[in-house]
Computed example of a mutant assay.
Amino acid sequence: MARIHTRRRGSSGSDKPVADDPPEWSDVDADAIESRVVELADQGYDPSQIGMKLRDEGVKGTSIPDVKLATGKKITEILEENDAAGEVPEDFYNLLERAVRLREHMDENPQDHQNKRALQNTESKIRRLADYYRGDKLDEEFNYTYETAAEIVED
């Protein structure tokens, strides 16, 4: 399948190994994992950063290769249960952050046509993702504007 904003196909990526049970060497209790996830979220880490921290540092010195296999829940589900989830989904927030940075760059460099195109593509992705999340994770009346994006990113 082709890419969204280019006509190239791209190269395929690797897949996670198929596994039904966590590895035997990672025998940390599910409650300890959940408390560590909430603790890292309170420190300001995003769900993807939390997963990498658990993979690298682990809980009590034991690495957690896959939180979902160990606990039966995704990191975002654990955060939602403990009221530690962000106000907008992480992928949407990252796109908003990028759009704000690009818009500020375009204000300083109006002749930068490559970044003008990058801003158009990013805003297009934001609008498509907003349609996906609208009503569930975003307000029903949410419409993307630079001002709303800057307000969300600023908080």
Score class of each variant (00 low, 15 high):
residue 45 Y to S: 06
residue 47 P to D: 14
residue 48 S to F: 11
residue 49 Q to E: 15
residue 49 Q to T: 13
residue 51 G to L: 04
residue 51 G to E: 13
residue 52 M to G: 14
residue 53 K to Q: 13
residue 54 L to K: 09
residue 54 L to N: 14
residue 55 R to P: 03
residue 55 R to E: 12
residue 57 E to H: 15
residue 57 E to L: 10
residue 58 G to H: 11
residue 58 G to F: 12
residue 58 G to Q: 13
residue 58 G to T: 12
residue 59 V to D: 13
residue 61 G to Q: 07
residue 62 T to P: 05
residue 64 I to A: 09
residue 65 P to C: 03
residue 66 D to K: 07
residue 66 D to Y: 11
residue 67 V to Q: 09
residue 67 V to Y: 10
residue 67 V to L: 08
residue 70 A to K: 12
residue 72 G to Q: 12
residue 72 G to S: 12
residue 72 G to Y: 05
residue 72 G to P: 04
residue 75 I to K: 08
residue 76 T to P: 02
residue 78 I to L: 07
residue 78 I to C: 05
residue 78 I to N: 09
residue 80 E to Q: 09
residue 80 E to G: 04
residue 80 E to W: 01
residue 82 N to I: 08
residue 83 D to E: 14
residue 86 G to C: 02
residue 86 G to S: 09
residue 86 G to D: 12
residue 87 E to Y: 07
residue 87 E to W: 04
residue 89 P to A: 10
residue 90 E to C: 01
residue 92 F to M: 08
residue 92 F to Y: 15
residue 93 Y to N: 05
residue 93 Y to D: 06
residue 94 N to T: 04
residue 95 L to T: 00
residue 96 L to Q: 12
residue 96 L to V: 05
residue 97 E to W: 03
residue 97 E to F: 03
residue 97 E to L: 02
residue 98 R to K: 08
residue 98 R to L: 14
residue 98 R to G: 04
residue 98 R to I: 03
residue 101 R to M: 09
residue 102 L to N: 02
residue 102 L to R: 01
residue 102 L to G: 05
residue 103 R to F: 02
residue 105 H to S: 10
residue 106 M to A: 15
residue 106 M to C: 06
residue 109 N to S: 12
residue 109 N to K: 11
residue 110 P to G: 10
residue 111 Q to M: 09
residue 112 D to W: 00
residue 113 H to L: 03
residue 114 Q to H: 03
residue 115 N to D: 03
residue 115 N to Y: 03
residue 116 K to L: 04
residue 117 R to W: 00
residue 118 A to R: 00
residue 120 Q to L: 05
residue 120 Q to T: 04
residue 121 N to W: 00
residue 122 T to C: 10
residue 123 E to H: 04
residue 124 S to H: 15
residue 124 S to T: 11
residue 125 K to F: 07
residue 126 I to L: 06
residue 127 R to G: 07
residue 127 R to K: 15
residue 128 R to Y: 14
residue 129 L to A: 01
residue 129 L to C: 02
residue 130 A to K: 04
residue 130 A to M: 07
residue 130 A to N: 07
residue 130 A to L: 11
residue 131 D to A: 13
residue 133 Y to K: 02
residue 133 Y to V: 01
residue 133 Y to G: 02
residue 135 G to Y: 15
residue 136 D to M: 05
residue 138 L to I: 06
residue 139 D to N: 08
